[in-house]
């Protein structure tokens, strides 16, 4: 009895999931892609039909040329790369410190850093601070702010991981005369790789997509990241919303993370599921 009921339940579940996935993910993606291939007038109807006149090259060239795409891509790659590298390295070092320390002061510092995950960073005083440091409106200022405000999640995840590790390996290496830096780079960092991978995924998602802080901290098209380029491209047309071009920009802006995801999806989904359990 249970065999048949189990099978019927499984079939019903997958039918339900498919019916849910179509409007939830498939239609939105299809609408964006297919309309990004159309001429402006046809795209304005926002139908799901194939284009009657294909306009792929024109639309995507417009995004590359007028949409500031390539420069924004370069800026996004630079900003995300530097930020994630710094946060992971500095955060892992801090996690080792916090995970192995029993001092009250260190405990307090740890809680303050964890609190930074929950409390959203305050924008206008940040601008005030950057102005005071003479780095307002610069890529450097934006990266420093990102490092300071995204550190919490990595420190939190990695400290929990360090606490669960027995200190035997570090002890043994220390007795054998290894320096702290050697122990950190040769023992701790490799052990922390899985949790740092999870942290990097969360970081790349939030840093790549950041629009709020970027709007205020990165003025001008020179320093624009992909969300900034998309926004100024979408709002640049006075007459009407050019759906075909906006969607082409959406496709190109989303492509880098989606391509990376296609190659790494097993590790990403698996890592996040396991990482969530530990965090």
């Amino acid at each position: 009895m249970s065999m048949r009921r189990g099978q019927r339940w499984a079939i019903a579940r997958y039918v339900g999931l498919t019916l849910f996935a179509i409007p939830w993910v498939v239609v939105p993606i299809w609408m964006v892609v297919v309309n990004s291939f159309k001429m402006a007038g046809e795209a304005a109807n926002l139908t799901l039909d194939l284009p009657s006149i294909w306009s792929i090259a024109e639309n995507y060239t417009a995004v590359l040329v007028q949409g500031n795409y390539l420069r924004a891509l370069g800026n996004s790659l630079l900003i995300s790369g530097v930020t994630i590298f710094a946060v992971v390295l500095i955060g892992a070092a801090a996690a080792w410190g916090f995970g192995r320390s029993r001092s009250k002061a260190m405990q307090v510092a740890y809680y303050i850093i964890v609190l930074s995950i929950l409390i959203p960073p305050t924008l206008i005083p940040t601008i005030y601070l950057l102005r005071d440091m003479h780095i307002e409106g610069s890529t450097l200022g934006y990266i420093l702010v990102l490092i300071g405000t995204r550190m919490g999640i990595v420190v939190f995840l990695a400290t929990g991981f360090v606490r669960a590790l027995p200190p035997d390996m570090e002890d043994a290496a220390f007795i054998d005369g290894a320096s702290r830096l050697q122990i950190f780079f040769l023992i701790m960092l490799p052990l922390l790789t899985p949790v740092l991978f999870v942290g990097s995924i969360i970081l790349v998602i939030t840093v790549w997509g950041d629009f709020f802080f970027a709007t205020f901290l990165l003025p001008g098209s020179q320093r624009a990241t992909l969300p900034l380029a998309l926004y100024s491209f979408a709002t640049s047309s006075v007459q009407s919303f050019r759906w075909n071009l906006v969607f082409a920009h959406v496709v190109l802006s989303s492509l880098p993370l989606i391509v990376a995801y296609v190659f790494l999806q097993r590790r990403i989904v698996g890592g996040l599921t396991e990482g969530a359990l530990k965090g």
């Binding site: 080792w96 260190m106 405000t149």
Partner: peptide
Amino acid sequence: FALPAMAFVGLFF
């Protein structure tokens, strides 16, 4: 080892 993280979070958060 925790000092750089504290400095960043302290200054920018």
